[in-house]
Design a protein around this nucleic acid. Structure first.
Length: 215
DNA sequence: TTATGGATTAGCT
DNA sequence: GCTAATCCATAAA
């Protein structure tokens, strides 16, 4: 049975990195515009890429669910730094999660990358996830822990990396794609401030995580 | 110093 | 649906 989903195309040469000013705003404004852009990892000839289909907003001192809630610490200092940098944390003793810092320096706010639609380097990502070749591509990067594992992202290596710079080997690219619609739901997996609508998705995209949380 | 639980996932019932 | 895996920040003592 042929796949009903058209293979997504991606041409790195036809992209531009998303600049720092884009992230120097309230993450609630950044999120709907960041959906549809592409997370890219390039190490030598190896290219990994995935379209951003799900994001969650975390705010600062007024968001009890945010790591920035209690103010700056050694762990979360990237959140209070300049915009456009990777904040990577380790959770549940098993998983890494990737955020991009927003707001100007001194103010916290970030976006958690929760799901990508794989575009390039699928065999490599399957291997990184310890999945057999030909596995369901939804298992690659639908979920924040899976996404980080597929891209080989760890706190030790990637925390603090500049996501607007090609030199970092990990950046966000714009290939011109714009989603037709954006939907907003409650955040997943939190208990504090769980009622706020701060999860942004491309509705209907099959790579969005948590089917039962879709509108 | 010790206890608790978390921005998760995979595997089993 | 339930829970183990298993680190680390924070709260409690």
């Amino acid at each position: 049975m042929p796949s009903l989903v058209k293979p997504a195309r991606f041409d790195l040469k036809r992209t531009r990195p998303v600049g720092r000013a884009f992230f120097a705003r309230d993450p609630r404004l950044v999120a709907p515009q960041l959906l549809g852009r592409v997370l890219v990892r390039k190490q030598g000839r190896k290219l990994l890429a995935g379209r951003i289909v799900e994001l969650e907003v975390y705010l600062g001192r007024d968001d009890p669910a945010a790591h920035a809630y209690a103010g700056p610490t050694e762990r979360n200092r990237v959140l209070f730094g300049p915009p456009g940098y990777a904040y990577v944390y380790f959770i549940y003793g098993n998983h890494y999660c990737l955020n991009v810092s927003c707001m100007r320096e001194g103010e916290a706010g970030s976006l958690l990358f929760r799901a990508l639609e794989p575009l390039a380097g699928i065999p490599e990502m399957l291997r990184a996830r310890d999945l057999a070749p030909g596995s369901n591509p939804r298992l690659i990067a639908s979920g924040p822990g899976r996404l980080a594992e597929a891209f080989g992202i760890t706190r030790e290596r990637e925390n603090g990396k500049d996501l607007t710079s090609l030199k970092s080997g990990l950046w966000i690219a714009d290939d011109g794609f714009r989603p037709a619609h954006v939907a907003i739901t409650k955040r997943i997996g939190i208990t504090k401030a769980a009622e706020h609508p701060l999860r942004y998705i491309i509705p209907g995209n099959p790579f969005v995580s948590g089917k039962k949380y879709q509108p």
